[in-house]
Design a protein around this nucleic acid. Structure first.
Lengths: 199, 199
DNA sequence: GTCTATACGTCGATAGAC
DNA sequence: GTCTATCGACGTATAGAC
């Protein structure tokens, strides 16, 4: 039976992550105090340490969760039943946009707060990030080998496309001039063109 | 006559900016203390306030200098004596890469520390940034109007190209696999292809 | 599970000696 | 121009009451 009064541990833990995500993304990890986070969820600073070992672990958990969700979502995503590199690239681009666009805060801290991770934590997140980049890199390498893509350098193209796509999050706002679907088509066009696919 | 002993005000001011740039870019504005900066240049914390009103002004000066140098460098850069949009875009891309690649620290803090600027300072930097983006946007708009470029949305294409190019700074290292000239050609190819220019 | 109280360090910035 | 000393506030994290 769930308790009726007070707040359960699981719920408070969830609130803690939500508050940390919001404040870290708005003001930056280093500029946010544990007192602020506690105030945000209506508890005292000391109570936070029931749910996280320390501030650093709180940051790492946010980034680690985000990367694991990303990789898991890709594994679960439907894949085209063809080896055509252009179709596989299209699939990746659409996936990337649809996953990242509704997660502005997570994407933002995953990039901005890397430097505030302690070395061991940093290494673990970097490994996940490289795994994700490797997905795109494989598609580009296959497309280059088959002659479907015109790509001077696969590694640079990988960085360029990821940077281009992730840049969406710096300007896209819900309810703005463009819908998610429109953004998706625009970026897809540019990515395919950039690797030399005629449309 | 220049003084022989001690350090002059101008020289210390220069050292202060250099130390702040180094530490802010490495650890982040909020995580760096005035005492650390002072230690870096071999003075006491109190002495820094002879050269800057406060920590915030120090950050603003770094970003403001960077943006003014960028806009001035563009004004001074040689321009093609043609209205061909593809040639003008090529000129912009080459300029962007050559200006930004050797300024990794300045570029990094100009993006990462925007959120740590107070509202007035933020507005001033944003205005300069929009002026720079406007340069590319004009070229793309002209190229779309003339039919030289295939661009679905000029504003999105502007953001996409800037993001793609600035992404260089996250991976490029001096003495690495690729020279500046090679990077320049690779990115130029991708940008031209992305807007539908045949090469 | 959350509170108050607190230890102990560091912060930005200033005052005043030299 | 730089130093030492210092103010008052705030930081993370823990101890122990309830």
């Amino acid at each position: 039976m769930a308790r009726k009064t007070g707040s359960s541990g699981e719920e408070t833990a969830r609130q803690l992550r939500a508050a940390a995500l919001k404040l870290f993304s708005r003001d930056g990890y280093a500029a946010v105090s544990m007192r602020q986070i506690a105030r945000e969820i209506g508890v005292q600073a000391g109570a936070l340490y029931l749910y996280t070992a320390d501030k650093q672990t709180l940051l790492f958990d946010l980034l680690n969760r985000h990367m694991e969700e990303l990789l898991q979502a890709w594994d679960d995503a439907p894949k085209p039943d063809t080896n055509d590199p252009a179709r596989r690239l299209e699939c990746f681009v659409r996936f990337h946009i649809r996953f990242h666009l509704p997660r502005a805060e997570e994407v933002f801290i995953s990039y901005m707060e890397l430097r505030n991770l302690e070395p061991d934590n940093f290494a673990r997140i970097e490994k996940q990030r490289r795994r994700y980049e490797g997905l795109l890199q494989s598609i580009l390498a296959d497309g280059k080998a088959s002659g479907d893509f015109k790509v001077a350098d696969v590694k640079v193209a990988t960085f360029a496309i990821i940077a281009m796509l992730t840049g969406m999050n710096t300007w896209y706002r819900d309810g703005g001039r463009l819908s998610v679907d429109m953004v998706e088509e625009i970026y897809l066009d540019m990515v395919l063109a950039a690797v030399g696919v005629e449309r």
